[in-house]
Design a binder for these strands. Structure first.
Length: 495
RNA sequence: GCGCCAGUAGCUCAAUUGGCAGAGCAGUUGACUCUUAAUCAAUUGGUUGGGGGUUCGAUUCCUCCCUGGCGUACCA
């Protein structure tokens, strides 16, 4: 492995020597604290007031140009970089000797007055340089001239595996994670302002449910019992609704043991919120409003994503799934059976899985023929009962339809929501139907959850519930096209 | 899971039909008190992702494996 390479070892050995030299010279290379009073961007912004004034900054050495008895260095703090001019006659021979032992990557504090160099760069003329942390492992060095970048650190694998380096060397990516923080904060604010309770439900669950997915399995030693990492928190949050909390939400890490690609990470963040006495129509309004409210905290309601201009301001359209499928296939799918669906799918050259059921076929048709075209925000509504075991029958009286919506933007699914099924007998029946699918080979069919059913049997108020993919919302609002670029430490194979 | 592509120094990349594994930056030593890819001089650094094979000789050809990227399938 590259860590074992001789030349890297050599570099580290040299740095350790310098570290020892510093200690010999009476310099503590790892002091316990330091007080800076300015950030680099602030000094640049307030240059006219600060010129000639003393400031103290702290940060990492990103470039170093030593010239005998003087040197220039760029120091990077949380806000950016600023150049420091260090002159022996100014800082004194002891500090200058110590300074000469420093490397790119070391953390230092600099006190000095603000000035502009002959080349016109706002800089700090150092009066004192303090070593705050010596680095012994080299940083990838990115250089730049006339807007051209040299030796960029851009290997995706290295960036994801060594995110600390990525953040140091490509500081522009910090913006994505700052925005991610804002998005989540605004979600909380939005729901808190409307009287929602933030709840925490189990991640380790004896039964998993609330979505169609394969779980991660683990084992509790003391209980000698199998546990699953949650795939959703739906069933627990609904128990809280039964218990009398009328508005609850959780921003939850969910875990699904499935493939990973640019829109799927095995652990991902989902916002789920449930509100008693409202239906899915109310929730459509609320989701629209929530997304707008979050977008306003960032760059506004006109969003550019993946080269697509997406308008979050116009009312999101609401289209029944069967209507969309009729437009896409030319067939009225009301009252179709599995065989007819399969025939239609084949007529569009879609490859069908060996074993397939009605719900999976509908899903396939949607995915292939409809979803990629749902660029502007669209609520797909009124799903077939067969693929919605937790959603309530449609008020229209159609025995095949439930009150459910999914939100699509840019061809990606962002939310899934129902008027929640609160008829305990119907719910039991649905679980039994799922169990049949399961024994028929559908691994993702949901499992009978007696504890949940018992709760519903105690009486659950009419409820509207929503699940919203947080990572995807971050992707949309930061114009990132891979989920790995909105997750600080995306899942990677063990090396 | 399947398909395509890639892996050479700490970083970014070369290496002709199979013929001594190279450059820039970083590092080391020295010079240099307004530089900014600092400059100048000298210099260190390699099990070419790993195993096996073909060959007098493999970074190059074959094969298996590892890792990643992209696409595709399932899922949000």
């Amino acid at each position: 492995m590259s860590d074992e390479q001789k030349s890297l070892k050599q570099i580290i050995a040299f740095r350790k020597e310098k570290l020892a030299d510093l200690r010999t010279a009476g310099v503590d290379p790892y002091p316990h604290s330091f007080s800076a009073d300015h950030y680099s961007d602030q000094i640049k912004a307030e240059y006219s007031e600060l010129e000639g004034q003393d400031v103290t900054i702290a940060g990492r050495i990103m470039s170093l140009r030593k010239m005998g008895k003087a040197a220039f260095t760029h120091v990077q703090d949380q806000t950016g970089q600023i150049q420091c001019y260090v002159r022996r006659d100014e800082v004194g021979p002891d500090q200058y000797t110590a300074f000469k032992k420093l490397d790119i990557g070391d953390i230092i504090g600099v006190t000095g007055y603000v000035f502009t160099t002959r080349m016109g760069e706002i800089s700090i003329h150092a009066k004192a340089v303090t070593v705050l942390a010596k680095s012994i492992r080299p940083l990838p060095i990115v250089k730049e001239k006339d807007g051209e970048t040299f030796d960029a650190f851009e290997d995706k694998e290295l960036r994801y595996r060594h995110r600390h380096l990525d953040l140091v060397v490509n500081p522009e990516i910090k913006e994505v994670f700052v925005k991610r923080g804002k998005i989540i904060r605004e979600m909380r604010n939005y729901l808190d302002d409307r009287g929602f309770l933030e709840a925490e439900t189990p991640i380790l669950q004896p039964l998993y449910g609330g979505a169609f997915a394969k779980p991660f399995v683990t084992h509790h030693n003391a209980l000698d019992q199998k546990l699953y990492l949650r795939i959703a928190d739906e069933l627990y949050l609904k128990r809280l609704i039964v218990g009398g909390f009328d508005k609850v939400y959780e921003i939850a890490k969910d875990f699904r043991n499935e493939g990973m690609d640019r829109s799927h990470n095995p652990e991902f963040t989902m916002l789920e919120f449930y509100q008693a006495y409202v239906d899915y129509e109310y929730q459509m309004d609320q989701v629209e409003d929530l997304i707008r409210s979050v977008a306003r905290q960032l760059d506004g309601l006109q969003v550019e994503w993946n080269g697509l201009a997406i308008d979050l301001e116009k009312p999101f359209s609401r289209r029944p799934i069967l209507e969309l499928l009729r437009e896409a296939t030319g067939h009225d799918l009301n009252n179709t059976n599995t065989e007819e669906l399969a025939r239609i799918a084949r007529s569009f050259d879609l490859t069908l899985p060996e074993q397939t059921n009605y719900g999976q076929l509908l899903d396939l048709l949607m995915k292939e023929l409809v979803e990629p075209n749902l660029i502007q925000p669209t609520f797909v509504i009124d799903y077939p009962k067969a693929i919605s075991p937790l959603a309530k029958m449609h008020r229209s009286g159609d025995p095949e339809l439930v009150e459910r919506f999914e939100l699509f933007i840019g061809g990606l699914e962002f939310a899934n929501a129902f008027t929640e099924l609160n008829d305990p007998l119907d719910q039991r029946q649905r679980f039994e139907d799922q169990a049949r699918l399961r024994s028929g080979g559908d691994e993702e069919a949901q499992t009978m959850d007696e504890n949940f059913l018992e709760a519903v049997e105690c009486g659950m108020p009419p409820t509207g519930g929503v699940g919203l993919g947080v990572d995807r919302l971050v992707m949309l609002l930061t114009d990132q096209h891979s989920i790995r670029d909105v997750i600080l430490f995306p899942a990677m194979r063990n090396k």
